[in-house]
Design a protein around this nucleic acid. Structure first.
Lengths: 218, 218
DNA sequence: GCTGCTTTGTGAACGTGTGCACGAGTGCCT
DNA sequence: AGGCACTCGTGCACACGTTCACAAAGCAGC
């Protein structure tokens, strides 16, 4: 077979589903399943079988017609494509309620994203220890990012401090940001930002509830 | 003008952006701004101006050509459309790390989603008080949902307990679920589910990082 | 090796979302 | 009152995502 060349682009929608497939496949693997059909995978993932096949086809032709996909091999391929063959240390900015919960959430490190550090601007919080990680001052951010080779930063500050946190992360050399603050961050084009906004999710649910209740007129 | 009749359907993508506009508009209102153009709103929201106008046009023609949109009126209209004219009490299932953080996160109640209750299956956790809300046993779920008229449930359990939590919520009468557990929930078609998955977000970032680093071959 | 059954991989049709470009309406200034 | 500058509302073309449907490919049994 020809050597790996020009990496094909994978659609965003597919990239967003690969982690879900990966989790399911890992679970199946743990349960001793070593072959799976697109149909079954679709069922477990709550999606359409054709979609599963198309998604997986972007990785290459790793299935066997008439049989299905070899679970272990598929896990390997998805992990490779998602860049999960090695750890990605993350640094958390903000040691408040959320920052603490994130640090305490074990599944973080387990899934290949060890917490390289937590920083806060509040001197009062600096020095305290959260689930084994000592909170350091935000001025140490560049040093942490440098020495621990961190490329992903997590913004877990109040809204008012989020932009400053993002600016500092970018200056320190981080290239991806996961933002929990309800703010639209302004960052250089090259920086990848993803947002998790609780209020937005609830308001979307609210819309559907209201629609359900309201009907035509209210 | 003709009375409000058959409610027009708003595209999902637009519904997901309305909360963002709403937050920005509220902020602007607080700062004394009472009129805003689609251009400015787009800038603050990090989107395209045409998109803003198209999104807002689904609510009706509430802008004034040559001028822009009246902030207060737009806030009112978006709130109405999203069903935010009254509170939506939520019930949290799972009083672990995450459940506690969610309960402690004040912005919850402020934004119209007061915590009507927190329940857990672990007797040891029942009775403790988290930011003013007493943890109750999961068996009390139906009663809480009924008496407090809860229609939104939050699943903040470990993955292994998530499906059971969802089943109980549905049985208790909840019609919308916000799921934080890394599991695809199986629920009746009529139930609206939204998912917030930390690991998925990080893995998407990882994909982009890997892509950035890897180039063609590695 | 041939037949029949199963399941992948993908072309094509369809639906949804985005962004441009411009007509239409509004306010302001003279 | 007329002209000008501005901004909304929207038709249209394009891009992206989803789903169907089916040929191609593999396995099992005889």
């Amino acid at each position: 077979m020809a050597p790996e060349r020009t990496r094909r682009r994978i659609p965003d929608a597919t990239v967003a589903r690969l982690p879900v497939y990966l989790r399911i496949l890992t679970e199946q693997s743990d349960e001793g399943v070593d072959s799976i059909s697109s149909e079954r995978l679709a069922e477990l993932g709550g999606v359409n079988a054709a979609k599963v096949r198309k998604d997986l086809s972007y990785l290459g032709s790793y299935g066997t017609r008439g049989v299905g996909y070899e679970v272990a091999y598929l896990v390997y391929q998805i992990r490779r494509e998602l860049g999960l063959t090695h750890d990605w240390p993350v640094v958390i900015v903000g040691a408040g309620n959320l920052g603490q919960a994130l640090a305490g959430y074990g599944g973080f490190g387990e899934r290949g994203f060890p917490v390289a550090g937590i920083v806060d601007i509040d001197e009062a919080k600096v020095g305290s220890v959260l689930s084994g990680v000592r909170v350091r001052h935000i001025d140490e951010l560049p040093q942490i990012v440098q020495t621990k080779r961190v490329s992903i930063g997590v913004v877990a500050t109040p809204a008012s401090a989020a932009q400053d946190a993002a600016d500092r992360l970018v200056r320190a050399g981080v290239t991806s940001i996961l933002n929990f603050a309800p703010v639209v961050l302004a960052v250089p084009r090259a920086i990848e930002v993803r947002k998790v906004d609780l209020a937005v999710e609830l308001q979307i649910l609210s819309y559907h509830e209201q629609r359900r209740a309201g009907g035509a007129i209210h």
